[in-house]
Design a protein around this nucleic acid. Structure first.
Lengths: 187, 187
DNA sequence: AACGGCTGAGAACGGTCGTTCTCAGGTCGT
DNA sequence: ACGACCTGAGAACGACCGTTCTCAGCCGTT
């Protein structure tokens, strides 16, 4: 097996385990056995647990961005494009292994002690805010709308995670539609 | 020193440490030295770390509820009462040791493995949602408004924590005002 | 004054974690 | 065929954690 696919195995296993049980609750041995490779090989590919975590977070951010863009792809107009975001959330919340936003979770667990985690979470959320801001600007709506739409998405993620139900996505979508209509009417 | 004040010392120390560095990052010895009592005494008062955590979360929920009610006390009308919530958040976010909602953080850290934490977070968030729902109902507004207002507050908490700035409170307040006005106008 | 019980301080225990080391067995070039 | 290298499997290491135990000193009662 070449290094690239072995890395893939490790990162996939770590992502599944970290997301499902928390980072500190998962030992290197558990990642090793889930990935099906030897401990030595794993330490050759990744010099530390933190390195694996960094790669997991990098890929989570990538997947999130791709998912958001894909959901917006078939939107007919800017309004639909914004609202597609909450439909994307609804689909995500309905997955049976959904356990909230990995960045929010890991920030709560390690944000205070691991700068890597804090920075990754900050960058991830900033990227999302920028995406929404671009959408709003391209549509010609007032810029103040963007952070408000982002807040709804953030709130929906934590609410869905803690409550265990996907309802928050629909609430966020309805609120976003109201905010959007109000902003357009006012303009 | 009597048991009640000793318990107070322990819970205060644990709350400060858990909130500031995460739960698993804090050892019993650190709580002991911060509280200034002996390990033996601490285990007499609380049979386990989890017991201390349960009391910390109970008091956090109490303080949150009291703060929200206090902020709403001087509101002239239902509209102001709802908006006072986001002013309360703004004050909280501006505290220099603000590190997000303790329930969201601990849920991210231990929600998957410690049912106590998951249940406490769920109960806390449910209590808040009920409070908002009562406010909305008492004012005669459509019930669908309540979860939307709650989402904004949740989103503001995680956004403020991760970004490190208190701006989210103002954004949430503005969005809440818009949602509220739209709901009233539609009624 | 003597004594049983409680205290604080911290050593000790059993377990787990991230990381490194050992070593027997296989592989590849020659 | 052979020896140098690499591999996987897991033991070993040092550190730390939550919890319990030890023990010398202090207390109030008699």
């Amino acid at each position: 097996m070449d290094d690239a696919t072995a890395r893939e195995l490790v990162v996939n296993a770590a992502d599944r385990l970290f997301y499902g049980k928390g980072i500190q609750a998962v030992g290197m041995d558990e990642i090793r056995s889930e990935a099906g490779i030897s401990l030595k090989r794993m330490y050759q590919l990744f010099p530390s647990k933190e390195t694996i975590l960094a790669e997991v977070l990098r890929r989570r951010n990538e997947a999130w961005t791709a998912g958001v863009l894909l959901a917006a792809e078939n939107a007919a107009d800017p309004r639909e494009k914004v609202l597609s975001l909450y439909d994307f959330l609804a689909d995500w919340f309905a997955e049976d292994d959904f356990r909230g936003c990995a960045f929010i979770n890991s920030f709560g667990e390690l944000g205070a002690t691991a700068p890597l985690v804090a920075d990754a979470a900050r960058a991830h959320k900033l990227g999302f805010q920028d995406y929404v801001a671009d959408l709003v600007r391209d549509a010609g709506w007032p810029a103040t709308l963007a952070p408000q739409l982002a807040l709804l998405a953030e709130g929906a993620q934590t609410t869905a995670a803690i409550s265990g139900t996907p309802d928050a996505a629909a609430d966020a979508r309805a609120a976003a539609a109201t905010l959007l209509d109000a902003a357009v009417a006012r303009a």
